[in-house]
Structure formats: structure tokens, C-alpha cells
Write a protein that binds this DNA or RNA. Structure first.
Lengths: 192, 192
DNA sequence: CGAAGATGCAACAGCTCTGATGCAGTTACC
DNA sequence: GGTAACTGCATCAGAGCTGTTGCATCTTCG
């Protein structure tokens, strides 16, 4: 209801919505059970304002997930997954995704409702991800016998792990992306 | 207070505690914000009984995390990480850990309080994990230049991903463990 | 068997969160 | 500049969860 944008929001209202979504991400990432009040304070907004824009807590979270998924899809697109050479695409996409996922940890950790827009986006992203991997496979970068869906899952896991970032002094997306792809393709074993 | 076992619990009481912990895992895995009442029902116990054994919700969760961490440590020990050949140890440990982590998803996903017993156990487990990797490295299974802490994190991530189990028709721990170790050591790239 | 321990049940007070409403003041937009 | 939208604030009722207590009953264990 809220997202359908049947009636275009006024400029200040749109600003509020953005502030609320960003605050929700910040607050819920720390405490997933945080109250609407806490989110409101973090957003510099009255609690009632949140309720005016989002009927439920769930509606808010759904909007949050959708917003983040859209940005994630954009991050993938920006890497030119269909045209750039596979290795280049993978590197760029990884670096982009790392930034988005880092900024929307909570939003992207929500198990999306199967028939939500967020879920559809995630599915499409996975599809394009596998497509890139298939191109890499065609180029001989990935073993021809490899199960691409498993490779994709490993790829996701490596990204997730990189974000937890232990005592990584190195948080440069490009550096992290390089390590992810290197690990994905070669593992930890000895180099030839 | 509850865990110190200063006063050994009566047999029926201990049974209750186990039932509560197992129910808590089951219920909280589905809904981390579930109420004590829901847990009590799932445990076949009155809510007041839970409060008699665990002062807080937090105390319950802490006990849950500690219990699971102990089982995890046991799973590692059972793989003879210090004596068995590295590859054998890794495989056995992985298979064992998969089972424990699968059964205690929620408990082991809690970010443990830094000075809790659970945290100490997790730290010890990580230490022993790196030790096994170091032995594998000495055997030439892992590149000599590899950052073992990163390798350990990748290993953890692969285990976690394997548990999410997409449409894996194959849920046999040994099969999954084999894939994990293969991926960890060789990645997805073409084989020699 | 008997005492100590454990449990279920019912009831209670206290707290927090939710969602809604009315109103007065401000802000954006035509 | 005026209207419509937006917001903050105060307030409200309702709901749910928590943690505790008292008491009667059942179970364990010596």
C-alpha cells in the first residue's frame, strides 16, 4: 500500500521515509527487536510519523528489504554482468555488492516473504549471478563439472564472511573482492 | 547461578531443563522473538517452571549457547584434531560439526557475550581449528602463504552455507563434508 | 515411608509496545 | 499567497510479556 506510490509523496515526506528506512537499518542491525520508538528517535522523527507511512512493523521491514534489494540489483547491473569479461564483471560486481551489503546488513538478512518484490529481486539477482558464473565456466575459469548453484552459494557465503570482517585492517572493497574471487576459484590449496 | 551446579539437580528437574533448552532452540530458531510462554508450551512445561530455572530470558539464551558450544567442542574433539592425519581430522570434524550445528542453529548464532563460557569455548574451538589447518599446511595441503585465519573463516562460512541447504537432496553429513573440504582446498576452478 | 524438592495452576502488578486520534503549527507546491 | 499535505505532540485504550507469589499436588531420593 505504502510503496505503490499511487499518490506521489511530497518532497519532505519522501525525505522522512528515507530517513526512517536508514534509521531502521542502523537500529535493527544492532537490535532486531528494537521498538518503533527507538527507530523514530534515530530517524529524528516522531513515532507517529512512522505509523503514518508504514502500517505495521512488518510493513516497514518489508519496505526496508525491498529498498535494499533494489540497490543490490543495481550494484549487480553496474558491473555489466552480461557484457564485461567474466573476471572483470565478477570483480566489479563483488566490490559493488560488498558496499551495498555492508550498508544494509539487516535489510538483506531478512528472509523475504516468497511473493514479495524483495524476493523476486533476490531471485533475479541469483539468476544473473549464475549467468556470470556460466560465462566464467565457458572461459575455463571454473571447472566444467562444477555445480554452478553450489558455486553461487559459496560465493554468497564468501561475501557474507568478508563483511563480518574480523580484525581486518583492510576494508577496501577492491582488496576484499580480489580475495573473495581468488578463494572462490582456487581455494586455499597450494598454487601451481 | 543456574549453571554452576552448586546443588546437583534432582533427576526430574534435570529432565525439565533439557526439555526447556531443546524447546527453546526449536522455537527460537523459527522466531527469535518468541515468548517464554511459547517455549514453555513447546517444552511441555509451565511458564513458571522456566522462570524458576532461568532468571531471565537472557539467562536462558546464555545457557542455551553454552550448552550448544559444549557440544560443538565435543564434536571437534571427537575428530582427534591433534593426532589424526589432517585430511582425516578435517573430514571427521566437519561431519560432526555439521550435525551439531544443524541441531543448534539458533543457539550457535548468538553473538556470545565476550566473557561468557560460550565465548571461551568458541575461542578455543577456533584455536584448535587453526591448529588443524596449520598441520594441513605443513603437509602441503594448504598454500604456505595462505592466511590461516582467513582460511578458517572461509571454512566456517562453507559450513554455514551447507546448513542452509537449498534444495539439496543430499543431506548426508559425510557427503556435505567432502564437498566443503574439496571446495575449501581447491575452490571452483578447473582441476589439473 | 517420609521429607525435601519440583511442578502446575491461578492470580497479580508492572512494564513496554502498538496503533489510533485530535489538534496546532510548519512546510511544500501550484 | 493560499491550500493541501505533512509533522510534532499529547493522549488514549488495548494488548502482550515478564517476573513473582502462594498453594496444592506429585515425584524423587535416602
Amino acid at each position: 500500500m505504502v510503496e505503490k506510490a499511487a499518490a506521489p509523496l511530497r518532497a519532505d515526506a519522501e525525505r522522512s521515509v528515507r530517513a526512517i528506512l536508514e534509521a531502521a537499518e542502523r537500529v535493527l542491525a544492532v537490535d532486531p527487536g528494537a521498538s518503533m520508538e527507538q527507530i523514530a528517535v534515530a530517524a529524528g522523527v516522531a513515532r507517529t510519523t512512522i505509523h503514518r507511512r508504514f502500517a505495521n512493523r512488518q510493513a516497514l521491514i518489508e519496505a526496508l528489504a525491498t529498498s535494499a534489494a533494489r540497490q543490490l540489483a543495481q550494484a549487480v547491473d553496474d558491473g555489466r554482468p552480461d557484457t564485461a569479461p567474466p573476471l572483470v564483471a565478477m570483480h566489479r560486481i563483488t566490490a559493488n555488492v560488498l558496499q551495498v551489503k555492508g550498508a544494509w546488513t539487516f535489510a538483506l538478512s531478512q528472509g523475504d516473504d516468497p511473493d514479495s518484490e524483495a524476493a523476486a529481486l533476490q531471485l533475479d539477482i541469483a539468476r544473473r549471478c549464475v549467468a556470470v558464473l556460466a560465462r566464467a565456466q565457458a572461459d575455463g575459469l571454473i571447472d566444467e563439472k562444477a555445480d554452478l548453484d553450489w558455486v553461487r552459494r559459496v560465493y554468497y557465503a564468501l561475501i557474507g564472511e568478508s563483511l563480518h570482517g574480523g580484525d581486518d585492517s583492510d576494508t577496501d572493497p577492491d582488496t576484499l573482492a580480489a580475495r573473495i574471487i581468488d578463494t572462490l576459484l582456487h581455494g586455499a590449496g597450494p598454487r601451481a
